[in-house]
Amino acid sequence: MTGTTSGSRLQLPRYVLTDPALRTPVAYADYRSTALRAPLRTPVDLPHRLTEVTGPLLGEDRVLPQDADLTLRRGGEALGQRIVVYGRVLDSDGRPVPDALVEVWQANAAGRYRHVVDNWPAPLDPHFDGLGRVVTDSVGRYEFLTIRPGAYPWGNHHNAWRPAHIHFSLFGRAFTQRLVTQMYFPDDPLFGQDPIFNAIPAAARHRAISRYDLERTQDNWALAFEWDIVLRGTDQTPFETDDDGDVA
């Protein structure tokens, strides 16, 4: 995929830019916290050099097998609707992203996070901490067992409720591919008034919504939702060869 040194020139992959009309903007007026935080100046284009096309190797040593099961923590079972959340991590030219670290965090079934800043009157669950980690397999697949998170109020506007969601953090192979996002559930009636969901351009919103998957439900045990995650891919240029016929 990548080239090798040719004199002082390097052939580097070019990561394609997502059309701005299909990307979440950094700022969105209806999401009030962006007003004082999102930079106001136009970002400067940074060409993709070695630092941008490489990235850290963060794999198996950061993850334990039990990190994929959020329903069994602190010696007991979490309350709520058990769900399997699974899918593939791909890049935009369709290649799976293997050995990629996937980190998730979420509210409990009542919509409460185990975090000091979250003190709205919904109960904590002693057996749910809301943290999951896995590494994708050789064909980019990931899978968690968790409970369906509740919606929660957040004070952005009058009677504002976040639609149920799971936070996802992903590394691909390169700095350019880094992604933090949120996965939603199909047909949530709270989508209409949520500025974090609606900040996503309309044509790309479906990509943030998981699909109910009857096939993967576990009989008498858990429902299932499928969600594929697509990271930026490369604009693959043909390899050049030098006089010796070696790939240069």
């Binding site: 299909l22 990307r23 979440t24 935009s92 030219d93 965090w105 979250d118 936070h167 995650i229 990271l231």
Partner: peptide
């Protein structure tokens, strides 16, 4: 690459990237 997308109506020939979202106030959990 000979790859032509997934064949689903909603997908262009290149797969659309997943849109980003804020880490929110509870990122310390994950």
């Amino acid at each position: 690459s000979g790859r032509r997308g997934t064949g689903f109506l909603t997908e262009p020939l290149r797969l659309g990237t997943t849109p980003s979202a804020t880490v929110g106030p509870y990122l310390a959990i994950g």
